[in-house]
């Protein structure tokens, strides 16, 4: 019997030359950075893992019962306990002498804020878990409220600009440094805009026995106010401006950064996003906040030494270079 087009594509899906941990049919928004990040992470992690997932968009859009988009064993318990759940899955597997790796997934709310204590405990107890924080810089699942990861001056529903305020008053929490201070073997930041770098870091983390942490910048088209087709462009500019530096931290020390060939002005990044629209009003406060954000980017560039020397295949311009048949880097 002849194969129908649907049978053909189903067969092609099964024959794909990569592991798909996150299957199609999930209900993430169009162009969702978090869905992409989770797909990229699970792809390299492979099937011999167990995932503990905090409450949040990722959990909701992947598992409306009875349809689950996950292909690996996956568990959601609560908002704030992904790290604890992962800890004990790991303890149980260790007790059962099984080599299966454990991953924990959380958003920035579940990681920077409400789940921070459980995460700190997990790191301190040296559980062999890779914790991945999908950082979209606000509580998106509940409708875009500010978190401690929301960048300075960004508009959310709980940090709206108005006569007295220009978006979020406070700064983005420097979580990675706090994680690094736990003296764990490996912590890194990554971005969906640099998928190969991201996947390299996942691989690196999974090779290490002990707690590892990955902060993945994951643009949210709905919450940030940009088209779904611009998720990568926005993510790339966050890196290239210095606002979201890509760094690797081992035992508390910065051991590698992705250098910037030519830092882009922050206004290029901000102008793409509705959450910073108020910063482009013709008024002194807006200009001051733009300068403030530029200063924060410059600060990151100085503190992490992001300015590269000669062009480099792994710098922020070179790392995403492709050629016929695949990536260069």
């Amino acid at each position: 019997m002849d194969e129908s087009p649907r049978q053909l594509i189903a067969r092609q899906r099964e024959a794909e030359p990569r592991y798909r941990g996150l299957e199609s049919g999930h209900r993430a928004c169009q162009g969702c950075g978090e869905a992409l990040a989770a797909r990229l992470v699970t792809e390299v992690a492979g099937g011999d893992v167990v995932v503990a997932n905090a409450t949040g968009c990722l959990e909701v859009f992947t598992t409306p019962w009875p349809q689950s988009a996950w292909r690996m064993p996956w568990m959601h318990s609560l908002f704030e306990n992904a790290a604890a759940i992962a800890s004990d899955i790991e303890a149980a597997l260790r007790h059962q002498q099984r080599p299966t790796k454990v991953l924990a997934f959380g958003g920035d709310g579940g990681t920077f804020d409400i789940g921070f204590q459980a995460l700190s405990g997990m790191l301190e107890r040296e559980h062999d878990v890779l914790y991945v924080c999908y950082d979209n810089e606000a509580y998106m699942n509940t409708g875009i409220q500010r978190s401690s990861s929301t960048p300075h001056a960004a508009m959310t529903t709980t940090s709206p600009p108005g006569r007295e305020r220009m978006g979020k008053r406070h700064l983005k929490k420097d979580l990675l440094s706090i994680i690094g201070a736990h003296h764990i073997p490996y912590a890194a930041s990554a971005s969906v805009a640099y998928p190969r770098d991201l996947q390299r870091k996942v691989r690196r983390a999974l090779e290490i026995s002990g707690p590892t942490f990955l902060l993945v910048h994951s643009p949210c088209p709905l919450g940030w106010g940009h088209g779904g087709e611009r998720t990568i462009e926005v993510g790339r500019l966050a890196v290239q401006t210095g606002l979201f530096p890509l760094v690797e931290i081992e035992r508390g020390a910065v051991t590698a950064v992705m250098p910037l060939r030519v830092p882009r002005p922050v206004s290029e990044y901000l102008a793409l996003q509705g959450r910073f629209r108020h910063l482009f009003a013709d008024e002194p406060r807006a200009r001051e906040e733009l300068e403030h954000l530029q200063a924060l980017a410059d600060h990151n560039i100085a503190v992490y030494g992001l300015l590269g020397g000669a062009p480099d295949a792994l710098d922020a311009d070179g790392a995403d270079t492709v050629r016929r048949g695949g990536a260069v880097a």
Binding site: I9, Q12, R13, A15, E16, P17, R18, R20, L22, E23, S24, H26, A28, G31, C32, G33, A35, L36, R39, L40, V192, P195, T231, I232, V322, R323, R324, G325, G326, A327
Partner: peptide, 25 residues
Amino acid sequence: FACGNCLACDNCWVLCPDAAVLKIA
């Protein structure tokens, strides 16, 4: 640049949040 043609660079395949781009043999 292979303007208007496929470089087979995998970008579409790597970057689809919905795993809706399939790479075929």
